[in-house]
């Protein structure tokens, strides 16, 4: 390409480029610009106000030697893997059940989707009561005659993540179900007929034929669920507030507490940079794989 062509190239289709300008600016300034600003300030010792007072990797040193951060990461990993798998599996099973042309499907769909209409804060408070040993499940089961029944996950460091998981799944599975149900409805009736003619059992048809065909729908669910997992914050605040002890802390909460309670912006920025990095490590290979796949098509 010669140098003479370039300006022409830039000016080609000018209205479209102008129209895209706000989007490009937003992406550059808000997303990339602010992220860079955060990363730069994570190398400073900013306290309450951001200051460019560089201290090298000190904030990261401290971050990775803080037990609370390490516990947070571990919790997020456990919660994330369990939540991801369980919400997809449960969501698909529910969607498949709803897809059996049952009566009152609308009613069931509404019931299943309903928790999603509640915020995580409300979800957390509701489950705090349900899991409270003096008022909730434990009390009810004991009332039925099982005097020694113990179910108190909110005050047990080993079980508290399950409490979070139960509440999180209760709230989030409905959405996955509905999206997957839409996906199931998109499967051509003829495929089912063909499978039936060949005498393939329904479960096998789901596993071998339907699920592979629903790959884009699963990808959407995956992205929605993972985004919800990484930013897990409000549910923890409402349900356990990180307790008992630090057993249910999460990275997002660490960031918030460092920035605003401890008045240590530098530490909070370092932690959020690590969160960004984690997301990039997961998303970049996936995105590359996806895009390359498309180009080959």
């Amino acid at each position: 390409m010669s140098g003479r062509d370039r300006p022409a190239q830039l000016l080609r289709n000018l209205p479209a480029k102008l129209a895209a300008l706000p989007m490009i600016l937003t992406a550059l300034v808000v997303f990339i610009g602010c992220s860079l600003w955060t990363v730069v300030h994570s190398f400073t010792k900013s306290r309450l106000l951001p200051k460019l007072d560089f201290v090298g990797l000190d904030q990261y040193d401290r971050l990775w030697s803080t037990p609370r951060w390490l516990v947070s990461i571990e919790n997020l990993a456990i919660y994330g893997i369990c939540a991801l798998i369980l919400s997809l599996v449960l969501g698909f099973v529910l969607a498949a059940l709803l897809d059996q042309k049952i009566r009152f499907e609308d009613g069931f769909r509404t019931i299943i989707l309903y928790p999603y209409a509640l915020s995580f804060i409300v979800t957390g408070l509701v489950w705090q009561w349900i899991l409270n040993p003096d008022f909730g499940i434990q009390n009810i089961v004991r009332g039925l005659g099982f005097e020694s029944f113990v179910f108190d996950p909110l005050h047990n460091p080993d079980q508290v993540l399950f409490a979070l998981l139960i509440a999180g799944l209760w709230q989030g599975t409905g959405l996955v179900t509905v999206i997957l149900l839409a996906g199931l409805r998109g499967i051509d009736e003829d495929i089912w007929k063909a499978a039936r003619v060949d005498g393939i059992p329904a479960w096998k048809t789901y596993l071998r034929v339907v699920i592979p065909m629903m790959r884009p729908v699963f990808a959407t669910c995956l992205v929605l669920v993972s985004a919800g997992i990484v930013k897990l914050y409000d549910l923890v605040v409402a349900l356990t507030n990180g307790g008992p002890g630090i057993a249910s802390e999460t990275p997002a909460k660490y960031v918030y507490d460092s920035m605003f309670n401890k008045q240590n912006l530098g530490q909070g920025f370092a932690a959020s940079t690590m969160m960004l990095l984690t997301v990039l490590i997961i998303i970049v290979p996936w995105a590359m794989f996806e895009f390359r796949g498309k180009r080959r098509d």
Binding site: G245, I246, K262
Partner: peptide, 17 residues
């Protein structure tokens, strides 16, 4: 406030484990 917060974290950890 940073040190106060860290001591508070330490205490929740201590009392919760």
């Amino acid at each position: 406030p940073d040190a106060t917060g860290q001591i508070n974290d330490l205490m929740s950890e201590f009392f919760g484990s």
